[in-house]
């Protein structure tokens, strides 16, 4: 395998006619790291990925892979490989020939390329399926084949476009750890587009939250979760309450909110009523409506909740530790 390469975007912009899809974003992804571009649909994350891959032209700005500006290079010369959302496995070719496709284009003989394909199929535990056709495989198997096919070009950066979105939830979690394992094993950079904050948290060294063609926040998962920069980021990654407090917009993690009987807690911050209770297994989600009309969510551990169970309509005092308060910047 080739060496991992860093990826750098310098004021990269993408316009489709009058529509601005990506608005001068700048980003550095360290060599060998796992980066997730996270955001709602239409936020520009896929356009960004496709520009890095070379399947979309750059309207303005520069894309660097390693120390080279690759704006004008065709996809195959960038040292990137892309895994498509639909996998795009060639239906008329066997699994082995799909994986060996890049070698075939280079004119490598059949025996040699098939044996190399088998090595990569081994890496994704698909060696037994080498002679099948793609439509005889399940979604998860197709994905492994697509991964092997992309890795065949020995990329220094692997680009993944919503790779797990077509899988059922159980398989998604399994393939997630598989992706992480392979990324560690190969040591190359992964850039992974997703709209699932859970996926991004689980996989990424660097989470890049995007909104409206801009980067709302980029940082390690813990930083994003504990210190969201804007209300948008806090809302999008979930588990946060956004409230006004003393003229500031603050966010409060739902698992930092504690509920007590009214009057019992001297330092309580809000009086509220329980508007909904959702049992979720490991924890219980309690929706609250404060006297000021704010909507809050508290997530309580299962045991903690049932030690002092609440009903819809119960009056409670809502409190939190002062350290749990995180101030948000107003924009976004």
């Amino acid at each position: 395998m080739t060496k991992a390469q860093a990826v750098e975007l310098a004021a990269v912009t993408k316009r489709y006619g009058d529509a601005l899809a990506v608005d001068a974003i700048s980003l550095k992804v360290k060599a060998g790291s796992y980066c997730c571009l996270l955001g709602p649909s239409g936020c520009g994350k896929t356009s960004t990925l496709r520009m890095i891959a070379g399947h979309e032209s750059v309207t303005d700005g520069d894309i660097l892979i390693g120390h080279t500006v690759v704006n004008e290079d065709p996809p195959a010369q960038r040292g990137t490989a892309m895994m498509f959302q639909s996998y795009a496995l060639f239906p008329h070719l066997s699994v082995a020939e799909n994986v060996a496709f890049s070698l075939r284009m280079k004119g490598v003989g059949r025996d040699q390329r098939i044996s190399r394909a088998k090595e990569l199929l081994d890496l994704v535990s698909m060696a037994d399926y080498a002679d099948r056709k793609p439509n005889q495989l399940s979604g998860g198997q197709q994905q492994r084949v697509a991964l092997a096919r992309a890795l065949m070009t020995e990329p220094s950066v692997l680009l993944l476009d919503e790779p797990l979105s077509a899988l059922d939830p159980f398989l998604r979690v399994r393939m997630r750890s598989e992706l992480k394992r392979i990324q560690k094993e190969l040591g190359i950079s992964f850039i992974h587009v997703t709209h699932s904050q859970e996926e991004a948290m689980a996989l990424a060294d660097l989470v890049v939250v995007m909104n409206d063609g801009r980067i709302a926040q980029a940082g390690p998962p813990r930083e994003i979760y504990n210190a969201p920069r804007t209300p948008f980021v806090a809302r999008f990654i979930g588990g946060h309450n956004i409230i006004e407090e003393g003229g500031r917009t603050i966010t409060l993690r739902a698992d930092e909110v504690s509920l007590m009987p009214p009057g019992e807690a001297p330092e309580s911050h809000r009086a509220a009523k329980v508007s909904d209770i959702e049992y979720r297994g490991p924890d219980v989600r309690v929706s609250l409506e404060t006297e000021r009309g704010e909507e809050l969510t508290a997530v309580l551990g299962e045991r903690a909740f049932f030690d002092r169970p609440l009903d819809i309509g119960s009056a409670v005092a809502v409190g939190w530790r002062p350290e749990a308060v995180h101030e948000l910047s107003a924009e976004g």
Binding site: A53, H55, A76, A81, F101, M105, M152, T153
Partner: peptide
């Protein structure tokens, strides 16, 4: 789906190879 052709291009196929293969 144009993704098939993009995949071929990504894997180093020339436009003619993409069409042919």
């Amino acid at each position: 789906d144009p993704a098939y052709e993009e995949a071929a291009r990504d894997l180093g196929a020339t436009p003619w190879q993409t069409f042919r293969h």
